[in-house]
């Protein structure tokens, strides 16, 4: 028999995340929420709104914009910001390229994914943010499985995975020296399924590209990528129209599309429950090597 004082796993995860987000607002002077327009950052924003109601969000949203976006994501972002009355800051990778901070990758597989790290760190420095909340989850990737809720970054923005602070119970140590900052991951303990179930339970609106639609795509190394002006086809590749949707949303150049007819959250959940491939299985940025994520994270990636 169920005890009256039990909670469902989604309630427990929600309460944990709200606690973490409130802890950020309480422990840091200039926190920011990293918003990509993907489902994880949308859920994190939703949790943040709940955490401070009836007050407003006590921190701005920061979007690191590669310039290689799905149009729908930007429309969604701007609508959300307006609805919440939140402040939006955009860090532009294009600007980092134009000012010579980074050099654009060349070749057909060029991606702006890695370049984002510089833009992110520059923006954090420019606005003197001392805590940046991200929607990273431990179930996503093996390097992320080792991540703390409160993850310390040195003055160069680097992560030292072998020398992380112990994190026990729900006591978070956000103390730091001048110039250092924290990355905080409020939904660390959520799985992909939890996120989708929560989106269904809370009736959270999502960008349209998460649902099935017709799109011109091409196949590269078994992954379906979207047609975009800045994508270059290799000799053996060609465009074709497919019924697809996004399982994750990142930079358009490295976000694999799923062949799917799922048109609502229930259908997406059934699809995910039956799938045998992880969501990052379609992310070209993770396939570069066995430690691709760890290496990027050490340098200051999301």
């Amino acid at each position: 028999m169920k005890n009256k004082f039990t909670l469902t796993h989604l309630e427990e995860l929600e309460y944990e995340s709200i606690y973490v987000i409130r802890e950020v607002a309480a422990q840091f002077e200039r926190p920011v929420l990293l918003f990509s327009g993907g489902k994880d950052s949308i859920v994190m924003t939703h949790l943040a709104v709940k955490a401070f109601w009836p007050g407003k969000l006590p921190f701005p949203l920061l979007h690191i914009d590669t310039g290689h976006n799905f149009e729908e994501t930007i429309v969604y972002r701007d609508n959300l910001v307006k609805k919440l009355g939140a402040q939006l800051i955009v860090g532009s990778v294009q600007e980092s390229i134009d000012t010579g901070r980074v050099i654009e990758e060349k070749g057909a597989t060029a991606s702006r994914n890695i370049l984002q790290t510089t833009t992110l760190l520059d923006t954090i420095e420019k606005y003197k943010f001392d805590a940046a909340m991200g929607g990273g989850r431990r179930d996503e990737e093996k390097a992320r499985a080792k991540e703390r809720f409160f993850s310390h970054r040195d003055e160069f923005g680097q992560w030292d995975p072998k020398n992380q602070r112990p994190e026990l119970w729900n006591i978070f140590n956000g103390r730091k020296n001048q110039g250092e900052h924290f990355r905080v991951f409020p939904i660390s303990n959520w799985t992909e399924m939890d996120v989708w179930q929560y989106i269904m339970k809370e009736e959270i609106e999502l960008p349209e590209i998460y649902f099935t639609h017709q799109r011109e795509v091409f196949n590269r190394d078994g992954v379906w990528l979207a047609k975009a002006p800045f994508m270059t086809l290799k000799d053996n590749e060609h465009y074709e129209t497919k019924t697809v949707r996004c399982r994750t949303i990142g930079d358009i150049s490295c976000t694999g599309l799923t062949l799917s007819a799922a048109n609502n959250i229930e259908e997406i959940i059934d699809e995910i429950a039956a799938t045998r491939v992880t969501e990052r299985g379609g992310r070209a940025d993770d396939m570069r090597s066995e430690a691709a994520m760890e290496d990027r994270k050490k340098e200051g990636y999301f």
Binding site: T8, H9, L10, E12, Q197, M200, K201, E266, I269
Partner: peptide, 9 residues
């Protein structure tokens, strides 16, 4: 889909 919402952690 529905059953999952009642799970404990």
């Amino acid at each position: 889909t529905k059953g999952y919402l009642d799970m404990e952690l």
